[in-house]
């Protein structure tokens, strides 16, 4: 759905993005991660057609936004890191203005506005002037505006910046919900825990360059990321404990076995979910009474800290 090839974006004073290439498949939720100043906002603005690249190619659904901006923009919903609003309009009026901008038929507008204003939990504030809304509400309103034309591609630049924990959770829930509609989402953030829950692909940027990009599984295997396996027996039983130790010890995907207590074993796990399920089946087959079987994979935050020096451009 989105292809970026050798992208370079310069400002007068600095090169914000340099030789950037990555691909986001349809339906993927792609987290663009990096420290402040890594070039995330510039990349998203270039994807939205708001910045002219110095060099390189961007394709949104095989359309180049630089040469065919109007065609490309039919697919794009863009939300910046701050909430640009018209303070002297009401929330409903604001959405109505952008419904017109997105060429939504006049008769369809009220239903669509109502749907999205309900979705972002602002129905009670529909007739309130935007200047009277809190920052979190404004952010949700801008999200509703972004979703209004039902774009196939969402470009969200730090959507939760400045939100309180409750508003952040609400936003996360909304994004999770819309991600299930098959939308392609690029979401940038430097708050890594935000992305961990729902991103299935990630690109880590540093100094305007892409350090690593791909699905979480690909990246985990590329950086030889080990998951933490925790197995807990239902009760203390020497025989079962020995069996468990032997099975785990014989597995090629497991290393660094540690006996934490008489009933708990921890180890590093290199395999994927399928291999973990197979291992569990083996344990059950041997009549070992398992109380807990947990494989904790590296999340976005863990991967980010395992990679790179985290410098800005």
């Amino acid at each position: 759905m989105i292809k970026v090839n050798s992208l370079r974006v310069d400002y007068e004073e600095l090169t914000a993005v340099r030789d950037l290439s990555f691909e986001v498949k349809e339906g993927q939720i792609y987290g663009l991660v990096g420290p402040n100043g890594a070039g995330k906002t510039t990349t998203i603005k270039a994807l939205a057609g708001l910045l002219e690249p110095t060099y390189g190619e961007i394709l949104i659904n095989n359309i180049d936004p630089e040469t065919h901006p109007r065609e490309a923009q039919k697919y794009i919903g863009y939300m910046p890191d701050f909430a640009p609003v018209y303070n002297n309009l009401t929330a409903w009026e604001y959405l109505d203005v952008f419904a017109a901008a997105y060429l939504i038929e006049k008769k369809e507008r009220p239903a669509k506005i109502k749907y999205w204003i309900d979705k972002v939990k602002l129905s009670e504030k529909a007739k309130v002037y935007i200047r009277e809304l809190s920052r979190g509400m404004k952010q949700r309103l801008v999200l509703a505006k972004t979703l209004l034309p039902n774009p196939k591609v969402l470009l969200l630049d730090e959507p939760a910046s400045g939100l309180d924990p409750i508003a952040r959770k609400d936003l996360r829930d909304i994004l999770k919900e819309i991600s299930q509609d098959g939308k392609t989402i690029i979401i940038s953030s430097h708050i890594l825990s935000e992305l961990s829950d729902f991103c299935n692909a990630v690109g880590i940027m540093e100094k305007g360059k892409m350090v690593v990009s791909g699905s979480l599984q690909e990246i985990r295997s590329r950086i030889k990321s080990k998951g933490l396996m925790i197995v807990r027996l239902a009760e203390h039983n020497e025989d079962q404990s020995l069996k468990l130790f032997n099975i785990l010890n014989n597995s090629t995907q497991i290393s660094g076995l540690q006996k934490i207590s008489d009933i708990e074993i921890r180890a590093s796990f290199l395999g994927d979910a399928k291999e973990a399920a197979w291992l569990l089946a083996q344990l059950v087959k041997q009549n070992i009474l398992i109380a807990e079987f947990n494989v904790k994979q590296d999340n976005v935050e863990d991967i980010f800290f395992k990679i790179g020096a985290h410098e800005v451009s």
């Binding site: 057609g49 910046p80 640009p84 952008f98 060429l103 505006k145």
Partner: peptide, 14 residues
């Protein structure tokens, strides 16, 4: 200055 013009720019309105 408010950045709302960017929203119009990135809309399909000619």
């Amino acid at each position: 200055i408010n950045g709302t013009l960017d929203f119009h720019r990135s809309s399909p309105t000619p």
